[in-house]
Computed example of a mutant assay.
Amino acid sequence: MMIQQPKPLTVKRDLPRPSDAQIAAFQAIPTGFVADALAGRGVLAPAIKPLLEGNLPFHAAGPAVTAHNSPGDLLATLAALNDVQKGDIVVATVCGHQGNAAAGDLVMAMLKNGGGAALVTDGPMRDLSGIVDVGLPVWCTGLSPASPSTSGPGTVGLPIQIGGQCVSSGDMIVADRDGVVVVPLGEIDTVLATLDTIRAAEAAYDAEIRAGRKVSRKALDVLSDGRTDFL
């Protein structure tokens, strides 16, 4: 028997956060560009997808506020709403639990009231019509009518594992139709500098394709420089 029961919540205060300029620089940037700038790192599992019903937005970029919930629970997500600043994205794990919803329209409405930009979770959502009415974007694993509990234990603000990635509060989250990418706080400036090169390369390649290119330069190089065995 435990002499003292653990508290249902652990909350980290004074969460780190990117600068306003860093946050602004990621707005409207495709996740593909961000993933390329990270050399393929930071991409959440493809099971975490945007809800696209009812013309919900499908692009968001903002600092993470993390919540770790026990499977089937919601308490940490609810507590994380207390720390949301304008433009933040709540990233809430339920340890991949699919037996009930990770959140619903009431959470989304409170997130919107607090100035939050989006929710990312590795569980399903519920109350789709209400979520559509709220109008904030959501990335999740689907839909479920089953309600979560609010018992804990859980954490807010501490690093979490979600979708195969580690996410810390203050990391930049960039999400769109293709999925979700996590940019570690300490790598933001490096990624932003690399994005300029990626944009230029992508624009040049697009121009070549519009002009009629049929085979990639990479493939043509391998075909012509002795690295191919022809049978």
Results as ranks from 00 to 15, higher is better:
Gln5Lys: 15
Pro6Glu: 09
Pro8Lys: 10
Leu9Asp: 12
Thr10Asp: 09
Val11Met: 10
Lys12Cys: 05
Pro16Arg: 09
Pro16Val: 11
Pro16Leu: 06
Pro16Lys: 05
Arg17Lys: 11
Ser19Pro: 00
Ser19Arg: 04
Gln22His: 05
Ala24Met: 01
Ala24Val: 01
Ala25Trp: 10
Phe26Glu: 04
Phe33Met: 09
Asp36Trp: 00
Ala39Leu: 04
Ala39Ser: 07
Ala39Val: 01
Gly42Phe: 02
Ala47Tyr: 10
Pro50Met: 07
Leu52Val: 14
Glu53Ala: 13
Gly54Phe: 04
Gly54Pro: 12
Gly54Lys: 07
Gly54Ala: 05
Ala60Thr: 07
Thr66Cys: 04
Ser70Tyr: 11
Pro71Met: 05
Asp73Cys: 10
Leu74Asn: 10
Leu74Arg: 11
Leu75Val: 12
Leu78Gln: 12
Asp83Phe: 13
Lys86Asn: 06
Gly87Leu: 00
Ile89Ala: 08
Ile89Trp: 06
Val91Asn: 00
Thr93Ile: 10
Cys95Asp: 15
His97Phe: 15
Gln98Ile: 08
Gln98Thr: 12
Gly99Lys: 05
Ala102Leu: 07
Val107Tyr: 07
Val107Ala: 13
Val107Glu: 12
Ala109Trp: 10
Met110Gln: 14
Leu111Glu: 02
Gly115Asp: 08
Ala118Leu: 06
Val120Ala: 00
Gly123Leu: 07
Pro124Ala: 12
Arg126Phe: 13
Ser129Tyr: 05
Ile131Leu: 12
Val134His: 02
Val134Ala: 03
Gly135Met: 13
Pro137Ala: 14
Trp139Ser: 05
Cys140Phe: 03
Leu143His: 07
Ser144Val: 12
Pro145Cys: 08
Ala146Ser: 04
Ser147Tyr: 13
Thr150Lys: 06
Ser151Thr: 13
Ser151Leu: 15
Gly157Lys: 03
Gly163Gln: 01
Gln165Trp: 01
Ser169Phe: 05
Ala175Val: 11
Arg177Asn: 11
Arg177Ala: 15
Val180Ser: 01
Val181Gly: 06
Val183Asn: 07
Val183Ala: 00
Pro184Ser: 01
Pro184Arg: 11
Leu185Trp: 14
Leu185Val: 02
Leu192Thr: 07
Thr194Asn: 13
Asp196Gln: 13
Ile198Leu: 03
Ala207Met: 09
Ile209Ala: 04
Ala211Glu: 14
Arg213Cys: 03
Val215His: 01
Lys218Glu: 08
Ala219Leu: 15
Val222Trp: 11
Val222His: 07
Asp225Ala: 10
Asp225Arg: 13
Phe230Trp: 14
Phe230Lys: 08
Leu231Pro: 15
